[in-house]
Write a protein that binds this DNA or RNA. Structure first.
Length: 1017
RNA sequence: GGGUGAUUAGCUCAGUGGUAGAGCGCUUCGUUCACAUCGAAGAUGUCGGCGGUUCGAAUCCGUCAUCACCCA
């Protein structure tokens, strides 16, 4: 390392040494340091510095460090542009970053595509709240143009907010390619920045899908959010259980009809008494909708009402005569068995109405106030009744109207009763207000037409969904797909590319609908051409088409005529008006994979990276996003959007509740990063990644992994203090190098094993397996054993041994940094660069490919395991027998096989050091008062007559023996079972035999020791 | 009502047919020159109940119980 020129023990004087020659990427950060490393990693200081170095080096750019042809591409699930990072994002992006960093180090041509979502309702809500808080005029007063301008302003202000937070986590996205789902839309200040024009892509898709017949306009019942005054999709509705009431209302039968209704029942529940009724009682949780009732349904087999089917009741208040219809939707066992039907305000009733031919009368406004001025409301009713109803209820909020109607019903005697009732009420997931089923014209994607390729792709394995169980969820939803309502009555979003013009009567003379004809096109020029062609052909004249301009007053009429010489008035021009609605946010995010890569241009990136490799997402947006991306990519480009969908858990709070702002249980990942460092947070999330569907985050766990970073740091610090980096960067490990020391051979083999485990785990998205394997290796093997083993070797008189051990340790620790880098990028980069001058940054270090079969030395492995078992045995015996920790004790070998003797000899210094052994001698007879330790091929005694208690040693041996014998009994039982020998695989039988033999041997030794102890007494 | 999943150490949970695991917590001991954000040693499980398949079940099947989530 060039800058650390000062010899050990002599602090450097004077200015920092000159920096390393300029490299790209820079070799190390410019902190010369002659002092030993600090005791801990200063994450707060280092993380921003390291991240800046990566960015300066363009380390995350698409294709950076690529050394092979294969590509690896992940599309980030775009967070809301005005949002902030929550733990779910942290988890989601940590997993993506691990994969991307891993593949980048492997030399794949990687792209992690970042960006944000314009999030229609959510963003509009944020801005409206901001306006209210600032005391500004509201959206309606501002008007659409100024409001949109204000939202763009908000977008610019929020820019970098969430992406900055992702950077703090270490996310290695190609930020130069940052995309936005409304990029390029009118008003975008970055419209000419050269970024992919997402807006044009979205509009083109709409037009294409419209022309293919995948998109249609229709009058349907939709979920209406009265707060935002927009339609929302089924998925944006959440059911909330609320305390409410069930009101029973009496609708009088017309024309003197009556029926017998049971009022008393015998012990077996059979009716025993009846009364004659001239009304039907219906039960409802929403009395205000009765104004729109157009029928009453009874079950076709209901004996009470059979003869009434086809008769009518008179709707109170309105006086509308409505039919009694037969439909199986009416459950004879529920309530009275008669159900009021309001097709315009209830999805079930809509279906009943469709089956039985009932009309739908809309009685509410867009804000869910009663709205009774429609012609269909008054049709067929007494004008006086209608006038009274309008006077009493028109313009009244739905809940006030409910109370008034109930009061009126009580006063007029048609309230039958009130029951307490707890039931589910649909709410808008953003507005949290009760949604209103509402009859409007909306745009729909005819999902049934495009769903099949999305199903087939997963069915055939073309696209893999992991874990397996989420496929079921995916299929279940797609196979029962409903039309997707994509129009939103919002201002913030992609405005629908449809323009309306007049429709003429059959003689092409009079306008019968001013906006009854529509044209779909991706530009004004195109729509003008289309409309001119249409009207010119229709009217047999050259027609000029004008487009209504935003901000200008709307023309009074949509068709204007000029007088011709012969006196007839012929049309000269029409004016088209654009559909004011915008598209559902998920329509545009459904195009994320192709839109971010520049489609419809056949860009280089599109060719290279599409279809993408893997989508990493939480299961809660499988429907919202994953399924729709599948459908839309197939519908638009006829290809799958990704090879694999990896679905992960939702992060929940300690009680297992979904974190949400309204519950106030949100953990801020940035607080955790501040406290523990990004690496610890990332490692924790990786380690928890497989834990079922819920992931409960606790700070004690993060703290534990923070400690792990410190452990790694100090292992490297130890190496540095012991001259491992004196000769510069560790070199490639060579199998034929002069590695003679068993401990060195052993740790090299262990390193190869963990490399295989990590690769295997990451290839299968088993992040927890990778994290746990690395944790166990670094802490349990490298730190607990190898560093300890190395101490006598590094202090050896033999310079060959010192050199070999330094080289091995340097290599092993380099491997730790590399293998840990995808999970803990900051500390590994810091260690990588501060320990030595390097060819490349850690972020671009070559991921190793060595195999355990090449690097594991079976003999060294066996020998070190023997040493470790012996040290464990001595330590355990010492601790249990209360031998003072600091006391070095003599050890005697009673039995000493050749292999054991060789193993001891080769590793004597480290056994002595770690087990605190003073000396070894060989004996022929068990001394009096000794602790016995059985090892493979040897029996050791600790002659400590002065210290130990014979009874206590006896108890210790008995306990060990009891455990051993229990295990042995199990093994022997299996081995004596002929069916086991016959049926079990050979290697299992072999393993069982070996294990039994070893335990048998150990047990025999312990028994002998116990016998000798008995002799003592 | 329909669907999906869960039930393993005090807590949070890994483990999908072959001798029950991790982290945290707990107990005892330790100022050994990488690390007290540490080290050494230790305790704790009829793997929800019952039945079945199997040489062998935490793991596969059935059933019951309890809980959670999604959809009506």
């Amino acid at each position: 390392m060039i800058s650390r020129a000062a010899p050990r023990g002599k602090p450097a004087l004077g200015p920092f040494p000159p920096p390393a020659p300029s490299l790209d990427p820079p070799r190390r950060h410019p902190r010369g340091r002659a002092m030993p490393m600090e005791k801990t990693f200063n994450a707060a200081e280092a993380e921003p510095r390291i991240y800046a170095a990566w960015e300066d080096a363009k380390a995350f750019a698409a294709g950076a460090n690529a050394s092979r042809a294969e590509t690896f591409c992940i599309m980030i699930p775009p967070p809301n542009v005005t949002g902030s990072l929550h733990v779910g994002h942290a988890f989601n992006n940590t997993l993506q970053d691990i994969l991307v960093r891993w593949q980048r180090m492997r030399g794949f041509d990687t792209l992690w595509q970042p960006g944000t979502d314009h999030a229609g309702i959510a963003t509009q809500m944020v801005v409206e709240r901001a306006l209210a808080k600032e005391g500004n005029e509201d959206r309606r007063t501002m008007g659409r143009e100024r409001f949109i301008e204000r939202v763009w302003q908000q977008k610019v202000e929020s820019r970098g907010n969430i992406t900055g937070q992702l950077k703090r986590l270490g996310a290695s996205c190609d930020w130069d390619r940052e995309a936005f789902t409304m990029g390029g839309a009118p008003g975008d200040p970055d419209r000419d920045s050269g970024a992919p024009n997402f807006h044009d892509a979205v509009i083109k898709v709409f037009v294409d899908m419209f022309e293919k017949g995948y998109i249609y306009r229709g009058k349907r019942l939709v979920n209406w959010d009265p707060h935002f005054e927009t339609a929302i999709s089924d998925l944006e509705v959440e059911q909330v259980e609320v305390d409410g009431k069930m009101w029973r209302l009496r609708y009088p039968l017309e024309n003197g009809e009556t029926y017998e209704h049971p009022i008393e029942f015998d012990e077996e529940g059979r009716p025993s008494d009846w009364e004659t009724r001239d009304y039907l009682t219906v039960a409802t949780t929403r009395p205000e909708t009765m104004l729109g009732d157009t029928g009453v349904a009874v079950h076709p087999t209901d004996v009470r009402y059979g003869h009434l089917i086809g008769k009518t009741v008179r709707l109170p208040i309105v006086g509308r005569s409505i039919p009694i219809v037969a439909d199986e939707y009416a459950d004879p066992d529920k309530g009275t068995g008669a159900v009021k039907i309001t097709p315009a305000h209830d999805f079930n009733d809509w279906d009943v109405g469709a089956r039985t031919g009932l009309s739908a009368i809309n009685v509410m406004s867009t804000t869910a106030a009663m709205s009774l001025k429609g012609e269909d409301f008054a049709a067929g009713c007494d004008p006086d009744d209608i006038a009274r109803a309008i006077q009493m209820f028109d313009g009244i909020d739905r809940y006030e109207a409910r109370d008034s109607i109930v009061t009126l019903a009580r006063d007029e005697g048609w309230l039958d009763g009130i029951d307490e009732d707890r039931h589910m009420v649909p709410h808008g997931d953003r507005s949290k207000t009760a949604i209103e089923p509402y009859l409007t014209d909306q745009w729909f994607v005819d999902t049934a037409k495009i769903v099949q390729p999305a199903i087939d792709a997963v069915r055939s394995g073309e696209t893999e969904i992991l874990p397996e169980q989420d496929k079921k969820v995916y299929f279940n939803w797609l196979e029962n797909i409903e039309p997707w309502c994509i129009s939103r009555q919002l201002w913030w979003g992609h405005q629908i590319p449809v323009w309306y013009g007049p429709t003429f009567d059959e003689n092409n003379e009079n306008v019968i609908a001013p906006d009854g004809t529509y044209f779909c096109a991706s530009s004004i020029d195109e729509v003008q051409a289309k409309a001119e062609a249409h009207y010119s052909k229709l009217l047999g004249d050259q027609i000029t088409v004008e487009i209504e301009q935003p901000g200008l007053p709307k023309p009074m009429h949509n068709a204007s005529g000029v007088a011709y010489e012969n006196g007839t008035v012929r049309l000269a021009s029409v004016v088209l008006t654009r559909d004011p609605d915008v598209l559902d946010t998920w329509f545009s995010s459904g195009l994320w994979p192709i839109g971010t890569l520049g489609w419809p241009e056949q860009t280089d990136e599109l060719k290279r990276y599409f279809p993408t490799s893997v989508l990493v997402t939480a299961f809660d947006i499988i429907f919202f996003w994953v399924a729709r991306m599948m459908m839309m990519q197939y519908a638009v480009v006829g290809q799958k959007p990704f090879d694999t969908v990896y679905v992960h858990a939702l992060v929940r709070d300690e009680k297992g509740k979904k974190m949400s702002k309204s519950l106030g249980n949100v953990l801020d990942p940035l607080d955790l990063v501040d406290e523990f460092g990004a690496d610890a947070v990332r490692f924790t999330l990786a380690a928890l990644a497989a834990m079922g569907r819920d992931l409960k985050l606790s700070t004690s766990r993060i703290q534990g992994y923070r400690n792990f970073t410190t452990k790694l740091w100090n292992a490297v610090r130890f190496a540095e203090m012991n001259g491992v980096y004196d000769a510069g960067a560790p070199t490639q490990y060579r199998r034929d190098a002069d590695v003679l020391q068993t401990a060195n051979k052993w740790i090299v083999g262990e390193t190869a094993k963990v490399r295989e485990t990590v690769d295997e785990a990451l290839a299968n998205y088993r992040f927890n397996d990778a994290a746990n394997a690395l944790y166990a290796f670094v802490w349990g093997k490298v730190c607990d054993w190898y560093v300890e083993f190395s101490k006598p070797l590094l202090n050896s008189e033999d310079t060959e041994i010192v050199a070999e051990t330094r080289a091995t340790m340097g290599w092993v620790l380099d491997q730790c940094m590399i293998l840990l880098h995808p999970i803990m990028p900051f500390i590994t980069e810091e260690l990588w660069q501060t320990t030595a001058a390097r060819e490349k940054m850690c972020v671009h270090a070559d991921w190793p490919t060595y195999q355990a079969t090449d690097l594991v030395d079976e003999k060294a492995d066996a020998e070190m395991n023997w040493v470790i078992a012996l040290i464990d045995g001595i330590r355990s015996a010492r601790a249990q027998m209360h031998v003072p920790v600091g006391l070095y004790i003599p050890v005697q070998a009673l039995e000493f096989g050749d292999a054991a003797r060789a193993a001891w000899t080769r590793n004597e210094t480290l056994i002595k050091r770690l087990a605190r052994v003073e000396s070894l001698s060989e004996i022929n007879e068990m001394p009096k008062g000794a602790i016995t330790i059985a090892a493979e091929g040897a029996l050791f005694c600790l002659p400590l007559a002065d210290i130990i208690d014979v009874a206590e040693e006896k108890a210790r041996l008995e306990k060990t023996l009891a455990k051993l014998e229990k295990e042995l009994a199990g093994l022997n039982a299996r081995l004596s079972n002929e069916k086991f020998l016959a049926s079990a695989p050979e290697d299992v039988v072999e393993d069982t035999r070996d294990a039994a033999a070893v335990k048998q041997d150990e047990a025999a030794k312990l028994k002998a020791a116990l016998d000798r102890l008995a002799d003592l007494e």
